[in-house]
Amino acid sequence: MTEPSFQVAAPRSTPVANPLFEYLLRLGDDRLVLGHRLSEWCGHGPILEEDIALSNMALDLIGHASSLLALAGEIEAQGRDADALAYFREAVAYRNALLVEIPNGDFAVTMVRQFLFDAYSVLLWDALSRCEHEGLAAIATKSLKEDKYHLRHSSEWVVRLGDGTEESHERAQQALDSVWRYTGELFDHDAVDDAVAAEAFIAIDHDALHSLWLTMVKDVVHRATLTLPTDPAMRRGGRRGFHTESLGHLLATMQIVARSHPGASW
């Protein structure tokens, strides 16, 4: 199916400077930005138990990001550690998918976004836990366990919101309709993916992943009595640093203290 989209993925013929580094940034930035978004809920959740659950997911994701960015820094071999990468890169140098940087919105937006990401992440980690790169496979195995638990939480909430009250159903449907356009990017395959497949033997079949993901999503959407969006238009660009305006503000907040004291230890 050809989707109308602004072509920002790297044409497959373009050589990529350090593909494994780029690839790890994508994985790490996804989780750092999403973890940061979830942490914005701390103290503002709909009920105490949910404050704890949201913090739990935030913590896990930032932990995964930390490991991934640390590995990225090692691969880059220019002396940047996870903190240097997290706190001293501009938005255009970030490689997260757009899905994770969009504002939290209401609880429905947060949970729907979380579910769509968790379903993708569980499938991805499952595949990557078997990849040839030992460092990444180890991170994948550990992260898979935690993400499975997140998926359980987010999917159960999507069902409860969809099949709850009229208001929650409406909000859940609106949430699904509004974030759907960011899901295509998760399954894009570009020159970076080709390069890591060739050089680091990390070969993910994105179409197969997308298909499995769609099956999982359809199942939960059905149980939630929601309707799967049909608009094929997808927004993309995060993987190449073409972000929404939200990311700049997110990073300004995240980085301000570190950048105000360059070289300081914390």
Binding site: L32, H36, S39, E40, C42, G43, L48, D51, I52, S55, N56, A58, L59, I62, G63, A65, S66, L69, A82, D83, A86, Y87, T253, M254, I256, V257, A258, H261, A264, W266
Partner: peptide, 21 residues
């Protein structure tokens, strides 16, 4: 939390606030 100046401090602070909850 959103301004913690290192990843380790960020995680520790989230964990602390979670404990308080």
């Amino acid at each position: 939390i959103t301004r913690a100046p290192s990843l380790r401090r960020k995680m520790s602070l989230i964990a602390k606030v979670q404990d308080e909850a």
